[in-house]
Structures are given as structure tokens and as C-alpha cells.
Amino acid sequence: MELFSDQFNGYLWQMVQGAYITLQLFAAGFTLALVLGTLIGIVTLSRNWLIQAVWKTYASIIMGVPSLLIIFLLYYGGSAMLSGLFGTDRSFDVTPFGAGVTALTIVYAAYVAELVHGAVMNLPKGQFEACSALAIGPVAAWRHVILPQLTRLALPGLVNIWMIVLKDTPLVSLAGLNDLVANAKIAAGATKEPFIFFIAASLFFIVFSALTLRLSARLEARFGRGLAEVKA
């Protein structure tokens, strides 16, 4: 196939649109997982047995079941679940994108929550005590003292999760989402040029990962302030 022919450019343009969908899926999934996971992580620090029971069940299901199955469950079973929750008289349309975002969110929220637990364990107990002794309430203490330090402790793990979420996005193409990898597959099949299109798709992931690493280095410098200076 001729490079940069009209047909080639057409497929390439489709891949660009696919990449845009991949990025949207990733951004929505990761952001929601981060917010939900942090909340779950904080709430499940409680020793309340009910909270612990719910958390343990959720974590063991999510960490034991492949993400692909969760995506399928939500995509093929999603509308039945929603009808069950909100009444059978209404019908619900579950899009591949919606199922994908939801699946990535609930799966990676569990991993983020685990990360929060680990970071809290690594924070000296004295930080909590200093807040108590200064009569700083729990919400303000979390906001101004604990979370900024947790961010520093959890950042390497978060970058890890960020990469894994990105690399999990193509799974949603199996539920029919026309993301980058799905469109690359269509183009490769139609043109019999697997290398060009799959390598182009790989390049996208490589470039995005490289940008990620630069971003994480900047964040690390930002949240490591006060500590980084000692080593310098």
C-alpha cells in the first residue's frame, strides 16, 4: 500500500480519532479511580468491622478477577443491573465507553486505596499526634498535613497505576469501543499492513509514557520539597 495515499491517510485519521477516545477513556478512568480510591482508602482506615468486611470483599473480588471480565460484566450486564437498581420500567443504554470508564474506575480505585493504606502506614504517627495536640480537626489535618505528605509517599505507586490504566484501555475495544487499538486493527486488516499501523499505535503509547515520566519527575520535585533539599 502506498504511504500517504488518500486511503492510507483515511486510516491514519481514524487512528487519530481512536487515540482521542483512548485518551478520554484513560483520563476519565484514572481521575475517577484516583478520587474514589483516595476516599475509599481513607474510609477503610477505620477499624469498624462492617467497613472492613465490605472493603475486604470488594478488594478480593476486584483484585482476583481480570479487568476484561469486569468490563464484559458491566457492558453486557450493565443495563440489567441499572434496571434492577432504578426500576424495570425504564431502559438503560450502556455504551462501551461508559462500561469501560466504570470498569477502570472500580478496578483501579481498589489499587489506589491499597496505595493510600501503605502510604498512611509509612507516615510517622507523630504527624497525626502533632495535629491533635495543636487542636487541628481531622478534616483540616488531612487536608493540610496528611494528604500532601501521602501524595509524596504514594506518587511512585500512582505513576505505576497510571501506566497500567493506560495499557488496560485497549481491553474496552473488545466491548466494541473504537479506540486507538481497535482502529489500528481495522486498518491493519483492511490494508494487510500490520506493521505500519500497529507500530504507529505502539508509538503513541511510548510517547505518552515518556510524557508521563517527565510529569511524574516534576510532581516528585514539587511534593518532595522540604525533603529533597537534604539530599542536594
Partner: peptide, 24 residues
């Protein structure tokens, strides 16, 4: 005052002293 100081490492000296008066 604690044995291990328990200053907030991510805040400057001034911010360490300002935090609680501002919040509480």
C-alpha cells in the same frame, strides 16, 4: 512539645507555626 519534634516536613518553619493559629 514532642521528643521527635513532629514538625510538618512539607511546610516551611513559618508555615509550621502559622498553620494551627489559622485553622483553629
Amino acid at each position: 512539645v514532642f521528643q521527635q519534634f513532629n514538625l510538618f516536613p512539607h511546610l516551611t518553619i513559618l508555615e509550621n507555626c502559622m498553620l494551627a493559629p489559622r485553622l483553629t
